[in-house]
């Protein structure tokens, strides 16, 4: 059982950082909502406060790791231009998609949208983590702050869903492959 180096990094980007981040969303929205609806009177335990701060900071870090690994490791492999005369485009995903009008849309809409919209997420989640850490249960007393935090969190969720969804489809149509082969398991 083996996997190419580029496949492994792509899996880490999408299934590691990206999916972990998506899984954390429902918990974050639930706790932000519950905490900020408490009327600002109930004081959560120090442990709970610390854990949720750690949770939100981890989400922001995961969001940054996802976009940075995507833009600076995987995207250059995706957009690499094939040398003149190349007929096998399997190692050049962007060119492979654009070579066929039936798949060109995956690049023109999918990748063009994904490569930018993903960046709204780390900006939004960094802000959300900061505001929550700064105000905590007092968010219940700042109605407009609470509304902004929830809207930016929802937009971050939407942006991640678009980027992650298109990422999965792009990898189906034109996978980023190559590099050294890594043997994960060898049968006797």
């Amino acid at each position: 059982m083996e996997i190419s180096y580029r496949d492994l990094i792509t899996v880490l980007h999408g299934m590691g950082f990206g999916t972990l981040f998506m899984l954390a969303f429902s918990g974050a929205i639930g706790v932000i909502y519950a905490t900020s609806m408490g009327g600002g009177e109930a004081t959560p335990s120090r442990w709970n406060t610390l854990m949720f701060r750690f949770y939100l900071i981890s989400m922001a870090v995961l969001a940054w790791l996802t976009v940075l690994s995507g833009a600076y490791i995987i995207y250059p492999w995706y957009r690499a231009a094939p040398p003149a005369g190349t007929t096998d485009l399997s190692g050049y995903p962007r060119s492979l998609l654009l070579s066929n009008p039936m798949t060109a849309g995956w690049h023109d809409l999918g990748m063009e949208w994904k490569e930018h919209i993903a960046w709204f997420t780390p900006i939004a989640m960094t802000m959300v983590a900061y505001v929550f850490i700064k105000y905590g249960p007092q968010l219940a007393l700042h109605r407009h702050l609470r509304a902004a935090v929830l809207v930016f969190t929802a937009v971050a969720f939407f942006a991640t869903a678009v980027a992650g969804g298109f990422g999965a489809f792009l990898n189906k149509n034109a996978p980023v492959r190559g590099g050294a082969q890594i043997i994960l398991f060898e049968s006797r």
Binding site: M127, K134, V149, F152
Partner: peptide
């Protein structure tokens, strides 16, 4: 409880 000023939060939101 001392109510925190909303300025720092507003700065984070507007800058985002």
């Amino acid at each position: 409880p001392l109510l925190l000023r909303n300025g720092p939060g507003a700065a984070a939101i507007l800058s985002a």
